[in-house]
Amino acid sequence: MATETDSQSSEEIDWRSESSSVEMSRGDRLREFYRSWVYEPAVIAWSDWRTRIGLFILGVYLLMAVVEVAGLWRNPSPNQAQAWLQPFENWAYPLGTTRSGVDLLALIIESTPFILLMVLAGGVWATFLAVVVGTVSGYKGGRVDNVIMSISDFFMAIPGLPLVIILAIALSPENPILLGVVLTINYWAGLGRSIRAQVLSIREASYVEAARTMGTSTPRIIVKDVLPNIMPYVMVNFVFAARYTVFASVGLYLIGVLPYTGQNWGVTLSNAYYQGALFSTSALHWLLVPIIAIVGLAFGLILVSQGMDRLFNPRVRTRLRGESESVEEEESSSTNTGMF
Rank of each mutant, 00 (worst) to 15 (best):
V147A: 14
A65R: 06
D14V: 08
R243P: 01
S20C: 00
A197N: 12
L171Y: 10
N79G: 14
E32W: 10
R52I: 15
P173N: 13
V164W: 05
N264W: 04
W37P: 01
P78D: 01
N237S: 08
P76I: 00
R212V: 03
G141T: 07
R35P: 00
E328M: 09
L303M: 14
S249V: 03
G192T: 05
Q306S: 12
A130E: 00
S111W: 04
W73G: 01
V132W: 09
T216V: 15
R52D: 04
V22P: 00
F88D: 03
L303C: 12
G256V: 02
A189E: 03
E40P: 01
L200S: 11
T5F: 10
T261L: 13
L120D: 00
S19T: 11
G138L: 02
A189T: 07
R16P: 02
F154D: 04
V316D: 06
S172W: 00
V246S: 00
V234A: 05
T3S: 14
L167D: 05
L269P: 06
D145Q: 09
I165V: 15
G142R: 13
A189R: 08
T261K: 09
V257Q: 05
L72Q: 01
W46S: 15
G54W: 05
T337D: 15
A211D: 11
E323W: 01
V182T: 13
Y187G: 10
A277R: 03
R212T: 11
T184R: 14
G307L: 00
V132F: 15
Q86S: 14
D225F: 13
L107E: 13
S270E: 14
Y93T: 02
I202V: 08
S282G: 06
R29V: 08
M1A: 08
W49F: 10
